[in-house]
């Protein structure tokens, strides 16, 4: 307790003395509260990072909650939380002037893969073209035999509208086409995995963070990933630019981040990088081809035109 007090005092005086001199200050003396809400796709990473960060910066109290990208952005905008986790750019959810107040920290990228139930993969569906994907997810193609698979009805197993995972998939895998047709909807990715397992002829999509990590292998029983245009969904292919279905994960702050928050974000993009990959996310700095993934170059007018 006494040590904490001293630490706090030191911190306070240090802050007063030099607001700008903060660089690699001693993390163990840092204190503050950071609350992160938003994207459920990013939540596991932020939570894992927060757990580890607590060991090196015990004075910083970090809380992590999901709630959806839109809610996260709204929370950070109105000051309910210090960080808004989001799968999408703030401009896509908030008014332009509200979005302008926020500062974007792109902490990592997340890839999405098309996944099918095992019977479909066993029936010969290993790769699909973009055109085939669009045709399947808009409900035009309804039997697997039309795309080189078994004579089986296609069942779409998706996330509901509003889901960041869905938005990313529509944007980068379907070229902006909106999913249509009858589909089972799932509250979260874990539920979607279960639905794929027990529905024959089903197809859906998952973030790589639900596919790649060692801990995910059990949940992936009875589910197979499908390549897009013969490119397998792997981190390597995302890094070398051949696999395009990925999006930046954002941690938004209102204005510049305070010291504790900035230190936490720096930690995720810095020392935590190895863990980022083992959790199935892509490290931003390794991305070589980012055309179309930065906010400005995103297929323009798409969100407004819907």
């Amino acid at each position: 307790m006494k040590l904490n007090k001293i630490a706090a005092l030191t911190m306070a005086s240090a802050m007063i003395m030099s607001m700008t001199a903060f660089a690699d200050a001693d993390l163990s003396k840092l204190s503050g509260d950071v609350s992160c809400t938003g994207s459920s796709a990013l939540q596991p990473l932020v939570q894992a990072a927060a757990d580890k960060f607590a060991e090196i910066a015990p004075g910083v109290n970090i809380t992590v909650d999901a709630g959806g990208s839109g809610q996260g952005l709204q929370n950070v905008s109105d000051g309910t939380s210090t960080v808004g986790d989001s799968d999408v750019f703030a401009e896509e959810k908030l008014d332009a002037d509200k979005a302008a107040e926020l500062v974007d920290h792109q902490v990592c990228a997340i890839g999405m893969a098309v996944v099918v139930s095992q019977d479909v993969a066993d029936g010969g569906v290993k790769s699909l073209t973009t055109d085939q994907l669009v045709s399947i997810f808009t409900g035009e193609t309804t039997n697997w035999k039309d795309v080189g698979g078994p004579d089986e009805e296609i069942t779409l197993v998706l996330r509901p509208e509003g889901s960041g995972t869905r938005a990313t998939f529509e944007k980068y895998a379907l070229g902006g086409a909106e999913e249509a047709g009858e589909a089972m909807e799932n509250d979260n990715s874990a539920e979607l995995q279960k639905a794929l397992q027990d529905t024959n002829g089903s197809v859906g999509y998952l973030a790589l963070s639900y596919i790649l990590p060692d801990e995910a292998q059990e949940a992936m029983q009875g589910i197979a990933t499908v390549a897009i245009d013969d490119v397998e969904p792997t981190l390597e292919n995302i890094y070398n630019g051949t696999y395009n279905v990925w999006a930046y994960e954002h941690m938004y702050t209102k204005g510049e981040a305070d010291e504790a928050t900035q230190a936490f974000i720096d930690y995720i993009t810095g020392d935590f990088s190895d863990d980022v990959e083992s959790l199935g996310y892509a490290v931003s700095s390794k991305l070589t081809k980012t055309d179309g993934h930065t906010g400005e170059a995103a297929p323009a007018g798409e969100t407004e035109a819907q």
């Binding site: 959806g68 709204q74 509901p160 960041g164």
Partner: peptide, 23 residues
């Protein structure tokens, strides 16, 4: 066949949507 009910649609979508939005 499969379908959705009033309660299931609320339960499955409320978490992802932004307060105050049309959805």
């Amino acid at each position: 066949g499969q379908t959705a009910t009033m309660t299931t649609v609320i339960a499955s979508r409320m978490a992802e949507l932004m307060e105050g939005s049309e959805a």
